[in-house]
Nucleic acid binder design. Structure first.
Length: 279
DNA sequence: CAATATACCTGGATGC
DNA sequence: TGCATCCAGGTATATT
């Protein structure tokens, strides 16, 4: 599920309920996620500590503690964070629980276990965050997400523009759903080699990226199969998807049938009428 | 450097 | 009802 909008919806849902709260206890499952759950670091730097604020970088949530530690959470494909009464029975695939001082739990549930949980200890947090952030791409809502920079990123790269949009080391937060939607809105074929795009076309991509990601955040994200916000409510942006998952359906703009192709192993949807492939 | 494959996992949909 | 197969929002790593 979770691309930038779903992660941001999660952040916003948790921010007020968690700010200033203390994590009285942390518990976890026996499974590993993408990496092992850092039990020792959780015990040492998160348990008993107060939460200061929650930020997002790329598709990662950063829970900043008052002691300077940072709990870094990635939702993978199926991860969800829920806020729930502490006495509720554990659900299958609950892998991390932050027990709060008001009787509520923050529960991380992830059936496929592609998510990750990392703790940056207070003494190294600044350095670890700098190293981490350097490896992540431009934030679509950030000041560096401008046509000049994208033109420079694409220079000499023959990769398809969709693959470039989804390359998290170059651009942060855009995954398969939103890459398809953004390119449709910008009227650019997904398989177009990135280095051939003009400054004007990058301008459209920037504008449509921001517009669509913002609409999706406002709609509470896209719930394709199982994304839920922190209160257990689904998002509704999937109802507004123009091309993703709509193979053979009529294009909302011109009525032509939406094509499904495979690009880099990922399902790609586009309208051949509105997104002509130019050589 | 680019494109592709593989790996990590579970579960839902589909087809027989 | 059962079983096999395919597919899914992500990312890291290996291979060609």
């Amino acid at each position: 599920m979770p691309e930038l909008p779903e992660v941001e919806v999660t952040r916003r849902g948790l921010l007020a309920p968690l700010s200033g709260r203390t994590v009285v206890r942390v518990s976890w499952s026996a499974h590993r996620l993408r990496g092992p759950i850092p039990r020792k670091l959780l015990q040492e730097h998160i348990a008993g500590q107060q939460i200061r604020t929650i930020d997002r970088r790329a598709k990662y949530l950063l829970l900043r503690m008052v002691n300077g530690a940072v709990l870094v959470i990635h939702l993978g494909m199926t991860g969800k964070l829920g806020l729930i009464q502490g006495q509720t029975t554990l659900h299958k695939h609950d892998h991390l629980v932050l027990h709060l001082d008001n009787g509520l739990d923050v529960r991380f549930n992830d059936s496929r276990r592609f998510g990750s949980i990392v703790v940056w200890p207070p003494d190294h947090a600044a350095q670890l965050e700098a190293d981490f952030s350097r490896k992540e791409g431009l934030e679509p809502f950030g000041p560096a997400f401008i046509a000049d920079n994208l033109l420079a990123l694409a220079r000499g790269r023959r990769v398809a523009v969709k693959s470039l949009l989804m390359n998290s080391r170059l651009i942060a937060g855009i995954g398969n759903i939103y890459a398809n939607e953004i390119l449709f809105a910008a009227r650019i074929a997904p398989q177009q080699p990135a280095h051939l795009l003009t400054e004007k076309e990058w301008g459209r991509i920037i504008q449509e990226s921001r517009r669509i990601l913002q609409l999706a955040i406002d709609a509470g994200g896209s719930s394709i199969s199982d994304f839920l916000g922190v209160s257990g409510h689904p998002g509704y942006f999937q109802l507004q998807l123009a091309v993703y998952g709509r193979k053979d359906a009529p294009c909302p703009r011109c009525g032509q049938a939406i094509l499904k192709t495979i690009q880099g192993g990922r399902a790609t949807y586009h309208c051949p009428g509105c997104q002509p492939h130019v050589e």
